[in-house]
């Protein structure tokens, strides 16, 4: 079972968290001006990365804060945790 480090509460079991999928997807500021393809990208298209993945988690059964993590989807190793709004850290092996 994954151990996830909430930036506030520290290491907790996976069962306390809700997964929020790929991170750093901003809602378009003016949806009305988006083409169907652009809007479709925003609501549907995800990277599904094999390897380094920037993703969102929420400490659902704890402090209820959203935060970000960098995880290697192959090894399941977490390489970084950071608060929402903070820039994504560069991690070794990130090919993106």
């Amino acid at each position: 079972m994954l151990t996830i480090k909430c930036p506030w509460c520290g290491d907790r079991d996976l069962t306390e968290f809700a997964a929020g999928g790929e991170g750093h997807i901003a809602r378009p500021l003016e949806p009305a001006t988006q083409s169907d393809a652009e809007w479709g990208d925003y609501i549907y298209t995800r990277k599904n990365t094999k390897g380094i993945h920037y993703e969102r988690w929420m400490h659902a059964q704890g402090c209820r804060r959203w935060f970000n993590a960098v995880r290697d989807t192959v090894s399941d190793e977490f390489l970084a945790f950071y608060k929402t709004g903070e820039p994504a850290p560069k991690v070794e092996g990130d090919g993106s």
């Binding site: 809700a18 929020g20 901003a26 809602r27 969102r56 929420m58 659902a60 209820r64 804060r65 959203w66 929402t84 709004g85």
Partner: peptide
């Protein structure tokens, strides 16, 4: 409740 928190925390801080 989760929906509200998600938007407030991640999109409209």
């Amino acid at each position: 409740m989760g929906w509200l928190e998600e938007w407030l925390q991640t999109e409209w801080p």
